[in-house]
Amino acid sequence: MLEIEHLVTGYGGVPVLQDVSLTLAAGEIVGLLGANNAGKTTLINSLSGVYAPMSGRILFEGADVTALTPRERVELGIVQVPEGRLVFPDMSVRENLLLGGINRRARPGRARQMEHVLELFPRMKERLSQDAGTLSGGEQQMLAIGRALMAEARILMLDEPSLGLSPLFVQYIFGIIDKLHAEGLTILLVEQNLNLTLRHAQRCYVLERGRVAIEGPADAIKNDPRTRSAYLGL
């Protein structure tokens, strides 16, 4: 469904991602692992179109989307839940969700999609008119995921969804991720938390200083001695 071919991305002429290739099949849940500064967030933002690549291609369902703007990619259904959640703090939960579905493809079905999201997160239903800035961290993560789903995501990219959450909430959020996977959504999961990701993902890539160091099924990655060293940035 998504293919990244020899992607090189950077800012100010300095490449951060160096020749990254990665594939994502429909309905798959793929983990993207790596230490801090390995380039995980840069990769996600390249997929969202925030950064223009210096070279390489991104294919979505066989079509080249490398040159598309962030808006056009959201309209295709390539949607991310950003690191740190980035909900709109001074808007209500409802307005946040509506903004999630503001793109041209999702707008006509917003009401239906909203119902679906509120079913998934009953907590959001109670908080509909509350400002997003007053929610707890876990609730904000729910809102951020709900907001991305409102865009009628076809590939959901989650950037560090467990960051700063209590263990209980982490469990809850990963339960939701499994549920979405079961519904058939394609998911790219970026995490620092190694064990958690290996438990939920089918395949994983380990990034090390902007390159793919290891890739393979989750079990193989788990037992690969290189994983720990790549992870610790050794």
């Binding site: 969202s48 925030v50 962030p70 808006r71 990619r73 959201v74 309209e75 949607v79 991310q80 950003p82 980035l86 909900v87 709109f88 703090p89 001074d90 808007m91 307005e95 509506l98 903004l99 999630g100 503001i102 793109n103 041209r104 907001r147 865009a151």
Partner: peptide
Amino acid sequence: RSIRAVHQNAHAASLMG
């Protein structure tokens, strides 16, 4: 709402499309 979204967080707004 787009105006307010851009005001509150332009990066997040662009991720909404």
